[in-house]
Simulated assay, not measured.
Amino acid sequence: MRTASAPISPPPSAEQAEKARTLITRLLGSLEKAIRGKREALELVLCCVAAGGHVLLEDVPGTGKTTLAKALAVSMGGQFKRVQFTPDLLPTDIVGTSLFNPQDGTFRFKPGPIFANVLIADEINRASPRTQSALLEGLSEQQVTVDGETRTLPSPFLCIATQNPVEFHGTYPLPEASLDRFAAQLSLGYPPEAEERALLTEQRGPKPATPLEPVCTLEEVVALQRAVEEVRMEASVADYLLRVVHATRGHASVRLGVSTRGALLYARMARARALASGRDFVLPEDLKAMAVPVLTHRLVLDTRARYAGTDKQGLTRELVSSVPLPR
Rank of each mutant, 00 (worst) to 15 (best):
L23E: 08
V95P: 01
A238E: 13
L179W: 01
T296V: 14
I120A: 07
G314E: 04
A252Q: 14
R21P: 09
V294H: 13
L135T: 15
V323L: 11
A291Y: 00
I24P: 05
Q143V: 01
C48R: 02
C48P: 11
V45C: 15
S236E: 09
G96F: 00
H169S: 04
T3W: 06
H169I: 02
K81I: 06
F281D: 15
L42S: 14
L319F: 01
L319E: 03
T248A: 03
R130S: 02
R204S: 03
L200V: 06
L212N: 10
E285S: 12
G189T: 00
V282D: 04
E285F: 12
E229G: 15
G77E: 10
S5G: 13
A267G: 11
L99C: 13
V144R: 12
S155P: 06
S321I: 08
S30D: 02
P324L: 09
A41N: 15
F115Y: 07
H251D: 12
I35V: 02
G138P: 13
V222E: 08
N164D: 06
R306D: 12
T150V: 06
G148V: 09
R2V: 12
F281G: 07
F157C: 08
L68N: 11
E202Y: 13
L199N: 10
R317F: 00
P192V: 01
L136E: 15
A235L: 08
E15L: 11
I24R: 02
L57C: 10
R268A: 06
L200G: 12
T201K: 05
S13V: 14
S128I: 04
G77N: 15
P326F: 05
V320S: 11
P192E: 04
R21W: 11
K38S: 09
D104S: 03
V83F: 01
P91E: 01
V146D: 04
L299E: 12
Q103E: 10
D122N: 03
M269H: 11
T260A: 03
V215G: 14
G262T: 03
E176H: 15
G189S: 09
M269V: 10
P211N: 15
S321F: 11
S187Q: 14
P129Q: 01
S236P: 03
S277G: 09
P208H: 06
T248E: 01
V323K: 09
V292S: 14
V49S: 15
P173M: 12
P326Y: 02
K33R: 02
L319W: 00
A238G: 04
L23N: 10
R306M: 11
L31M: 07
L68Q: 04
L72F: 00
L315C: 02
V254E: 13
S253A: 10
L46V: 02
G205M: 10
T316K: 05
G205W: 01
S187M: 08
Q203T: 09
L28P: 04
R273F: 01
A51S: 03
R304A: 05
R304Y: 15
